[in-house]
Write a protein that binds this DNA or RNA. Structure first.
Length: 139
DNA sequence: GCCAACGTTGGC
DNA sequence: GCCAACGTTGGC
């Protein structure tokens, strides 16, 4: 089991949109970055991820689960691009802000802290548990 | 709104 | 194959 982080601008696709899809989940489409795509190719059914709001909020707001492994991105005919499907599992009891991540020494090496532009990122198990604690949320 | 970081494109 | 120019993202 591995852990991930999905970044989205809430005005485009936010946590409430994700929750509205329910158990059916939704394609994480539109990614046009090789690093991000490669991470999605590594994802397995049942892997968990954080859902992060970029721009205005800058905080981790929920937990999602991979409900379909990598497949062609239906938003393009270009077969280079693939995506996974994710479904909402539960919200963070308390959102964990970027500022909190930056100020916690245990999260100093987190990709989110230091490669702000990558939209799909790996999260280590240690980082996963620290953030769940900060968010008062069940890992 | 600005700017730094990063990825991509295209000329050579 | 290198590198300058350009576009995009996202934090501040």
């Amino acid at each position: 089991m591995r852990y991930w982080l999905f970044k989205s601008e809430p005005s485009t696709w936010g946590w409430s949109d994700q929750v509205a899809r329910g158990a059916a989940g939704e394609e994480w489409d539109g990614v046009r970055n090789y690093q991000a795509r490669n991470h999605m190719r590594e994802m397995k059914l049942g892997d968990l991820g954080f859902f992060y709001h970029s721009q205005k909020d800058k905080e981790i707001v929920g937990i999602v689960e991979i409900c379909a492994e990598a497949h062609p991105d239906s938003s393009t005919d270009d077969n280079r691009w693939e995506c996974v499907d994710i479904k909402a599992v539960r919200p963070m009891v308390k959102p964990v802000s970027l500022a909190m991540c930056k100020s916690d020494p245990r999260l100093a090496d987190m990709v989110l802290v230091h490669n702000t532009r990558l939209s799909v990122q790996p999260v280590t198990p240690q980082e996963w548990h620290v953030i769940c604690q900060l968010g008062d949320t069940l890992a």
